[in-house]
Design a binder for these strands. Structure first.
Ligand code: ZN
Ligand code: ZN
Ligand code: ZN
Ligand code: ZN
Lengths: 138, 138
DNA sequence: CTTGAACCTACAGCTACTGTAGAATTTGCA
DNA sequence: TGCAAATTCTACAGTAGCTGTAGGTTCAAG
């Protein structure tokens, strides 16, 4: 039943051992069973929870958002509106990051195209990097 | 000549006072003149340098990259190849971030569309958030 | 039963700032 | 000139989300 050591869990969820302990410290993962010798032992439920956390992290959710989502799932009678709201907020956030990065990309293209080779004295890269007036970046 | 207090400089470059002191600590900004009462006083050169740093930061360059760029400009006889290389690396980095965020966006859309309202027990948001198998995210 | 891998706690360090405390200085106004 | 308010000074702690290290203990294979 409690078959996973912390290292097993780490391997199974592609995480570092310290990260799991960190999640426990910060209340994202519950305190697991311990062996007589004080080592952590986990079950399938813990693995599912950790996988959920890791995947949400890969999607860019903050630990606070993940904590909120996990809290909501612990109360299955609640409306799912809040959970969906968190997802939508994350979507909005990702979309605005994309928009911003697209602006940056444009500017970086302009900057690297301004280099025609030569010495620093002649090169326009630094100069162009200084000119905020020509750019859209916030 | 040395007309700017640290607060003036902060206002002029849209920075916080502490950030300027931090840049000084970490060697990005040189140590400025001081008044008899030990307060920092800056000139136009310092403002230019700070503006360069701030704009580069907005473009996503790390402080290390900025330090390298500043070091290169201090040696105007050098080839500009390294400077351009730093800019191109940053461009590549930004492009890969955009690509990744586009994947995330797709997945977040899928997730938020899976919610049809109801209770947490019925809602597919959490479930879909757990399913890494259906997604492209690394 | 030994040995080496994995585990334990506790703490420091990473990036790039930001905030705070408590003291000193500067500045504007009467 | 005098005084209060704003600004500055240093030093240090805190933020997110881990990651790495030291020094010691426990587990599992042979
Ligand atoms: Zn060039
Ligand atoms: Zn710009
Ligand atoms: Zn729902
Ligand atoms: Zn995914």
């Amino acid at each position: 039943m409690y078959k996973y050591s912390i290292g097993d869990l780490a391997r199974a969820a592609a995480t570092k051992v310290q990260t799991i302990r960190y999640y426990e410290e910060t209340g994202l993962m519950p305190e697991p069973m311990r062996t007589a010798g004080n080592q952590r032992r986990y079950d399938e439920t813990a693995l599912n929870r950790l996988s959920f956390i890791r995947h949400s992290r890969q999607l860019g959710f903050s630990l606070d958002s993940i904590k909120a989502l996990l809290h909501l799932t612990d109360n299955p009678d609640q409306s799912c509106q809040q959970a969906n709201q968190i997802a939508v907020e994350q979507l909005v956030e990702v979309e605005s990051r994309i928009a911003r990065l697209n602006d940056l990309r444009k500017e970086l293209v302009r900057i690297s195209q301004s280099c025609k080779g030569g010495t620093m004295a002649d090169c326009k890269v630094i100069e162009t990097l200084s000119e905020h007036s020509l750019c859209d970046c916030s």
